[in-house]
Design a binder for these strands. Structure first.
Lengths: 208, 208, 208, 208
DNA sequence: CATGAATGAGGCTTCATTCAT
DNA sequence: TATGAATGAAGCCTCATTCAT
């Protein structure tokens, strides 16, 4: 027994140190942005020895990705929401709801998302990580479209993946706009437009 | 007096030097990417004196933006194409055509566009420049939508700017995909799906 | 009392740990070379605690020398071979044989010898260790020369130590060449030439 | 005219700076040895800006090799000495003379040669450089042997390259001994023994 | 207008070693 | 004996930019 418990104590210590570094990292990233942040700053903020950071993280990217992943879990939760509409209206409503959750989360985490956006452009690793997230969303959306097609709710001559991609891209870009605080439109208006175009298109249907 | 003929010669000289630098810049950017390119490299490639580059460009961004602008003119030409459809079908066709031009240009200039993409993420100035281009496209698309609405071809309870934005964003993202060579879909298929969703939506219209 | 049986167990344990470290050391040294190998790597490979290595070895050199000594025992065995030739031809043959053993052993242990060579250049301690080995060889060869002189087989106006030195040095250098895989000559040819020059010289004797 | 001469002035300046760095380099290397010397030390000693050293040298090795090459020129001069003996005695004498020059130079440059020796063991580049020097000597000696064979002064069933190699190696090792101040023999004695063994061998010729 | 030698701030990273348990 | 988290000194190197000519 005494051979195992002491290690737990040590491990606890180690976990604390790592947490301290992550917390410091978040703080510095939020304050200085991704590019300008240096490992030194994080270390100083964390009040850790210089080498210590390198025990836990290979470099700045590595630390940031860990930080980012915490956040992305929340996005994944939204992506995985079930989607089984029974009518066209029902679908419309569910979709609007999903978009709402997605955009709201981004806005709520605005500060961190701004850093994420910067990091995507600068670091190939972070970019990769973001692509994974995109793909996860797109895949899930494609499934939903497939379901709607099988229920004869959606047009069947369209490739679910391609539609999912275009749809997600619009959402993502509006999301970045909101995160940047640069949108001149209200979130509700954005959602309304996105959803209408997506479900019903811009033009009037041909009158038979 | 002495400012007339000799200065013309000098100006000629100056223009030549600048061109030499821009050409070298393009070369190095294409080879090394945006981040890894250094002013020193460009200077060496241009076979110019170290200080000389600073006569013409404030820094790397500055030089790059000049390079980028040459390319963007071509995009503007596409954006400015007239759009005055008379029927729903006509509109559909014209839109598809526009998308085609847009994506084709990007693919044709793929190499430079890849660098542009990288630069957008890294340099705030380049990012700003790209935003200008986006806005120009969006503004023009909004005009077109407005026209379609006035012709009673398009739904009128939608804000042209907002629709234009969403529409452009989808197009842009597929464009980057194609530029990255990472799309698993043919350009024709992409265009077809984009246009259908945009004009007619994904779901069947309510019957009755 | 309690120092008897339990301590034996402990000692057993200790010996095991040390062996584990030495084995890991050999592995890492062979893979990464001397300079690039770090104590940390060895520790990780040995699956031992960080501090543990310091219980047994002062540092990298220390560990390496222990490893090296195992190998050097084999060289000593060759050096100690008896040498009591009765004729010039007999001597020639015995010498050739000795050289053969020496070079063959080095080639057989090539991988480790490469590391040894690197370590000699980098670490003063290892260098010292190698000098001991040289001296042991030279001393033994000097004895042999002395014996040959006493038997009136060898020239007597030559200092055995000096001759031994020059002789050993040639051998050693060819040995390193073979170890480096950089010799363009066969081992047999090398042995033949070494031995002939050593015993009979390069030039024809004076025809009196 | 005024377009060309100013550059000469600048170039002069640059050459001075480089010399300053080389001089500082020599100083620091002699004082601290190869491994312990850092670029920073050299820069401080040279009273130059930090980046300046990197304008002229890629790194420590690079600077050292330049320093080393100055010295090696002197060795090359010895290696290239003509060798066209007419008799066995003549050859013996010329060889002894050559050895004398070689060892004397090394002893005269003892301090620098000690650093060179250290550097050979530590830096692959320096090691390579030294190998070049060895090969140059060996090649030249092989030529000389070939000449002696053609004059029927030397045994003809021996491969000149192989003999040259063995001969040079003995010389080199004694050289390092002298440089290390670790030889217990006088240089004259060393030369005498080396030359005798090389030309006449250790053993008496067969009496027939 | 053109030059190019000189600068130095400042980031990155490694690793031997300690010491409390 | 054994452990392994924590340390921090120290070296490396790049590159934008200046300024005297």
């Amino acid at each position: 027994m005494s051979t195992k418990e002491p290690s737990t104590n040590r491990q606890q210590q180690a976990i604390q140190t790592k947490k301290k570094l992550l917390k410091a990292g978040r703080e510095v990233f939020l304050q200085s942005g991704f590019q300008k942040t240096t490992i030194s700053q994080i270390i100083k903020t964390a009040n850790t020895g210089y080498g210590t950071a390198y025990v836990y993280f290979k470099n700045k990217n590595d630390l940031f990705i860990e930080l980012m992943e915490e956040l992305m879990i929340k996005f994944y939760e939204i992506a995985e929401k079930p989607f089984e509409p029974t009518t066209r209206e029902n679908a419309h409503e569910m979709i609007a709801n999903q978009v709402n959750l997605f955009l709201s989360l981004a806005v709520k985490e605005r500060e961190m998302m701004q850093i994420v956006k910067e990091a995507i452009g600068v670091s190939e690793e972070v970019n990769q990580e973001w692509k994974n997230i995109q793909e996860r969303f797109i895949k899930r959306i494609a499934q939903d479209i497939h379901y709607a097609q099988s229920q004869n709710l959606a047009k069947q001559n369209l490739d679910p993946t391609l539609v999912a991609r275009g749809w997600f891209y619009s959402n993502e870009m509006f999301m970045w706009e909101l995160v940047d605080n640069e949108s001149h439109h209200s979130m509700d208006e954005i959602i309304r437009h996105l959803t209408i175009i997506y479900t019903s298109g811009l033009y009037f249907q041909n009158q038979f």
